[in-house]
Design a protein around this nucleic acid. Structure first.
Lengths: 207, 207
DNA sequence: GAGGCTATCGACATCTTTGTCAATACCGTG
DNA sequence: CACGGTATTGACAAAGATGTCGATAGCCTC
């Protein structure tokens, strides 16, 4: 694209606006995406924002879409990396958990769910994760011979759901709960909890 | 208190307004508590709401306070009941989980955390729960003799945190996750998940 | 250099929401 | 019945948000 007045490309302007709006989305929710404030963050007038996105609603849609795409891509690449790595589930868990927590994008799903904003079905490749986890469980069960019961598919599904719930919720209520329970609210406490959680999930899957 | 015009007591009016505001709080968050809409829900003019609460902010504070008190009381009474009952942890877990989910008050904590609204420290008696759970673990460990390691306090603390995270988050993301993972979004799926979760926590504590 | 395209913005219109105020209606009390 | 207290409300003010419009200024093409 060609640069025009103020030395900014349309694409650059769009991205800068989306960045500012996404920060507000993560910090304070979709309702807090206000044209004037987003424009002020970027350093433009609010009609400029409307010029690029048409309406506030279209801006919110674009921000949500881009953020969800980012999560989708990040999770997929983490899965791809961990499948070549040796760490397997443990590193995958830690990678996804810390990224969702640090980037604040875990909050996104709660904002959207609470505000009743629909999320495309494949924003997190859950089916894929369930299938991979269950295959691994079945394989380990065969290796161990016929002792013990076969892992049930529903058990794997529930485990994945619990994992996602815990990972995402931990980024929101985690610090407060950990502090109130007597562990402390610092970064190390969060990490210890994540490590503990990962071990627990893994132990359950390998049971 | 004496009844005045329109046949309504001041206390009744306050409670009716708080009820309407709380419903909006749970459904759509603190930001959606709008004087005109709350007033319309109750069937009064919006200056009436201001008359009873002074300002919108004071109304929001009152609603949050009342809702948190309700959770606190409900959890305490559930603990009291379950300590006399025989069911122990399992019934307590199910009682608190389903009440938080059904009443929608689990959403409250996420709204408050996301919007950055401070929550009084004892809104859920976590310390008490941790202490009770850990005492029970130690006792069971003694009964089983010296086999296995003593349960660590931090493990109990993490378990309580995970339990609270899962219970509350399940009321928000639960239905969508369960559906997307292939279990279904109906009420039975939710109950099965809760039961599975309770068993898993219990198995971990009794390990 | 002329002209078209477009990113930008100041000013304005409109709507929503919170908050104020004076007036009204009703109750209990003297 | 008269009166004080209070719950209630319509009308208005003020602030903030979204969206519109005409004007401006820079880049690219011819």
């Amino acid at each position: 694209m060609t640069a025009t007045s103020r030395g900014r490309t349309a694409e650059d302007a769009r991205n800068a606006i989306l960045d500012a709006a996404e920060q507000r989305l993560i910090d304070s929710g979709p309702a807090s995406i206000r044209l004037q404030e987003v424009a002020a963050d970027v350093g433009v007038g609010h009609p400029t924002v409307l010029h690029h996105f048409g309406s506030r609603e279209a801006l919110v849609d674009a921000v949500v879409q881009r953020a969800l795409d980012s999560v989708h891509g990040q999770v997929l690449s983490a899965i791809a990396e961990s499948s070549t790595d040796d760490g397997g589930f443990a590193t995958l868990f830690d990678k996804v958990a810390s990224w969702l927590s640090d980037s604040g994008r875990g909050r996104l799903f709660y904002w959207l769910a609470l505000e009743g904003i629909a999320v495309p079905d494949d924003s997190i490749p859950l089916q894929q994760i369930v299938a991979a986890a269950h295959d691994q469980r079945l394989q380990r069960a065969r290796e161990r011979g016929c002792e013990g019961a076969h892992p049930l598919l529903e058990d794997t599904r529930f485990t994945v759901v619990l994992t996602v719930l815990a990972i995402t919720a931990q980024g929101i209520l985690g610090p407060r709960l950990l502090e109130r329970v007597g562990v402390g609210a610092d970064e190390r406490a969060q990490k210890r909890f994540r490590a503990w959680l990962g071990e627990m999930i893994l132990r359950h899957l390998d049971r």
